[in-house]
């Protein structure tokens, strides 16, 4: 059987080695690429991301990947955005000025401590609980509410539609969307590729989703 090919969009934002290793462990074939055709047609696509929102969108625009990604979404092919890659799915972000996102899931990206009186220790770095919001989503299968994932971020996604929030996480007195999804487009704020066994289960779920879609 041909291995499931999953593209990792290469727009020059940091470390993708662990994502590739996690996909390999799950029996998939990772392809780090900026080629439009592969981005659109691979069985799965991962948008990685460490760094600044504006810079990442600029790279994506420069490489002409935004149209390939949107075309993929129109065709209902699975996509997973990780950390900044998740935030890119929304309409716009406030990080270092206003920047437009991919607009795949409607909503905003805001700094976690915006509009609050009490200070919040940021970045939010470390292991925190991911609590599924609704009964079942294939991405979170076999991940129970007591499992921790590794986060490192200061900004959070705020989808307009409550149904787009698939799981949430509590940080001090602040609750935010830690997994979002709409159709076959998903995003997680934590790094599954850095979240030990629980993270690998999520990666495996994504691979399974890519195989069956």
């Amino acid at each position: 059987m041909k291995p499931c090919r999953i593209a990792i969009a290469d727009y020059g934002v940091g470390n993708v080695k662990s994502i590739a290793s996690a996909l390999q462990q799950g029996g998939a074939e990772p392809v780090l690429t900026a080629e439009a055709k592969i981005i659109t047609e691979a069985e799965g696509l991962i948008l990685p991301g460490v760094g600044a929102f504006g810079n990442a969108m600029q790279q994506i625009g420069h490489l002409g990947l935004d149209d390939s990604i949107r075309e993929r979404v129109e065709r209902q092919r699975p996509l997973l955005g990780i950390c900044l890659g998740m935030q890119l799915l929304l309409d716009q972000s406030d990080e270092f000025g206003q920047h437009r996102g991919l607009g795949i899931i409607s909503g905003q990206v805001r700094r976690m401590d915006q509009h609050r009186d009490k200070p919040l220790k940021l970045p939010h770095i470390g292991w925190n609980r991911v609590e599924p919001a609704q009964a079942s989503t294939p991405l979170l299968q076999d991940i129970d509410a007591r499992q921790d994932m590794y986060f490192v971020h200061s900004f959070v996604a705020q989808p307009d539609e409550p149904d787009a929030v698939l799981a949430s996480t509590q940080y001090q007195d602040h609750r935010f969307a830690s997994v979002i999804g709409q159709g076959n487009s998903y995003g997680c704020q934590f790094h599954p590729e850095k979240s030990a066994t629980a993270g690998l289960v999520l990666m495996q779920n994504f691979i399974n989703l890519c195989k069956t879609t």
Partner: peptide, 25 residues
Amino acid sequence: FVPITVGGGIRSIEDIRQALQAGAD
């Protein structure tokens, strides 16, 4: 599959880039 930090002898932007490209977080 957990975060990896590297330290010691980080002297330039290029050193950081190399460490992150090798897979450090």
